[in-house]
Amino acid sequence: MNKMQRAMHELSEMDELAAGSSPVHALHPAAKLITTVVYILVTLSFDKYDLGGLVPMVLWPVMLFQISGTSVKTCFYKLRIVLPLVMAVGLFNPFFDKTVLLQLGSLSVSGGVVSMLTLMLKGVFCLMASFLLMATTPIDSLCAALRKLRVPKLIVTLLLLTYRYVGVMTEELAVMTEAYSLRAPGQKGIHISAWGSFLGQLLLRSMDRAQELYSSMLLRGYRQEFYYADHRAFRRGDALYMLACSSVFLLLRNVRIAELLGSTIVR
């Protein structure tokens, strides 16, 4: 299996994860979507030096990993390409912001280091939350929820087709990479001289296949609505989950739990 085929397989695995049957999977997609959005907004709203306040925000994704039966390892493995990019945000902060913020014995911690860590954690938490949403909700149900929340058809269709076309494009890339490597033994990757034609061909082939896939959807009655998605009713439990989680996020945002716990223990 080459790299691309593995990527394709991993993408399909997301569908398998989303088809689980845990209590988190059973929640209404709109409830999960709104809760995730609230979580991300609250996480992003923390001040760049508020590392202590931000850390307890990890509790929600950790709890969801446990309840949904989703492996943390799988999450980080699947996010391995995006994670370094997220971690790289704020990497230069220690060089620009040298104001000493903390003194741990003889060790001075600058504001740059704290803000770097805060930015990194924010990114990681948001990615974990997004991953959990995708791993517990089938894409079509998510799109149906977006339509229920009155997100325009065009945007939802774009989201759905992008998700489907990523798979198609990866498949084409897998085939082309394999064909290339068979005729370029011992060569690592695609030679720079072939990049132009390779990308051009990839685009044309993917467009052809994407067109056929979309035609296939149209021929089976697809009208940019998600009649076929799982339409479970929005129950009281879903509303409760949404409200409870959002309240906890806001509580964590406004009450410095870590400091409170620390001072209680010290006392």
Binding site: D15, E16, A19, D140, M217, Y222, Y227
Partner: peptide
Amino acid sequence: DNQMFMPTVYEDMVFAPLN
């Protein structure tokens, strides 16, 4: 591959009837 775009065979089969 272009015809079977849903995750499972069952989901693909009910796609048109539900639409």
